[in-house]
Design a protein around this nucleic acid. Structure first.
Length: 282
DNA sequence: AGCCAGGGTCTGC
DNA sequence: GCAGACCATGGC
């Protein structure tokens, strides 16, 4: 009988920590530096961030990834899914590497995994990302969490719930210095809070329907909707087209994505984005 | 100093 | 459907 892929993932308890062992196509630096998540930062060799209301501290030494001060139960309940350890990246990489450019991109950006982030957090974060640069996106999100999130440890805050932001005005968001995006954040919060956009439904509705639903929100166009579906709903067929992908597609794939990359277009996109941006390929 | 940033809206064809 | 002005702010 075939063993489910997730049962091949080796996770062990070590003292107060949990350790992920083996070659899992897993690179913390690439995962957190590739522009998909904005709340993790490297401090003294340890990646620290918050997701789903929980603090996570982790580091990597080769084939060992250490998750500090958590139980196996918490790891399996939250982080296993967050880091998409149920997805066989070895197979995906093999498939898309049939194309030479994707072979280069997956070699350069090895260990990137698309995170399954909270839908609302991804939506709100990528609204903030529009016409913006990554350092400032992080700054605005930091101020958003400090201003409206809950303090779970000294100086560490959760991402505020949509219900918390829905009743606010643009003036209330002034401390974020989010500019023209403030009104979009509030509209998104309202539509999530009142159920016009249902995060759970976005994971199973047909792709086009889910995307149209998200685009009801002011300030959500094709790109932000696709980022929300890819990073916040586990929809790996979503293919966000930002300025980098647009340029690289025009220069490297004028006839569209190669067939081998279409099934996991979003994952292929992320390798390509990181590869192009880090090497300034236009 | 000035260009640009993981874009979207609005208007006018 | 496509092009262009405009949008706030600050990183580089």
């Amino acid at each position: 009988m075939a063993i489910a892929y997730e049962e091949k993932v080796n996770v062990v308890k070590s003292g107060e920590n949990v350790v992920l062992v083996g070659n899992n196509n897993f690179n913390l630096t690439h995962i957190f530096d590739c522009g998909q998540a904005f709340r993790f930062n490297l401090k003294d060799g340890i990646w620290q961030g918050v997701a789903f209301g929980k603090i996570l501290k982790c580091s990597q030494d080769g084939d060992h990834v250490i998750f500090y001060n958590i139980t196996i139960e918490e790891f399996k309940a939250i982080w296993f899914r967050y880091f998409t350890l149920d997805i066989n990246y070895g197979e995906i990489i093999k498939t898309i590497s049939e194309n030479k450019t994707f072979e280069l991109a997956t070699n350069f950006a090895d260990g990137i995994r698309i995170l399954r982030q909270d839908t609302w957090e991804a939506l709100c974060s990528f609204i903030i990302s529009q016409n913006n640069n990554i350092p400032r996106i992080k700054g605005i999100i930091d101020r958003l969490c400090e201003s409206f999130g809950e303090e779970i440890e000294s100086g560490i805050y959760t991402f505020p719930r949509a219900e918390k932001l829905a009743p606010l005005s643009v003036l209330d968001l002034a401390p974020l210095r989010a500019g023209f995006r403030a009104k979009y954040i509030i509209d998104a919060a309202k539509k999530i809070a009142n159920g016009e956009v249902l995060p759970l439904s976005l994971t199973y509705l047909p792709y086009e329907t889910a995307k149209e639903n998200l685009m009801l929100i002011k300030g959500v166009g094709h790109k932000v909707a696709d980022c929300t579906l890819l990073f916040g709903c586990g929809r790996f067929e979503a293919f966000p087209i930002d300025v980098w992908i647009k340029r690289v597609m025009a220069s490297l794939f004028p006839d569209g994505l190669p067939e081998c990359a279409t099934e996991y277009a979003g994952i292929a996109q992320q390798y390509l984005f990181y590869y192009a941006r880090m090497n300034n390929i236009k």
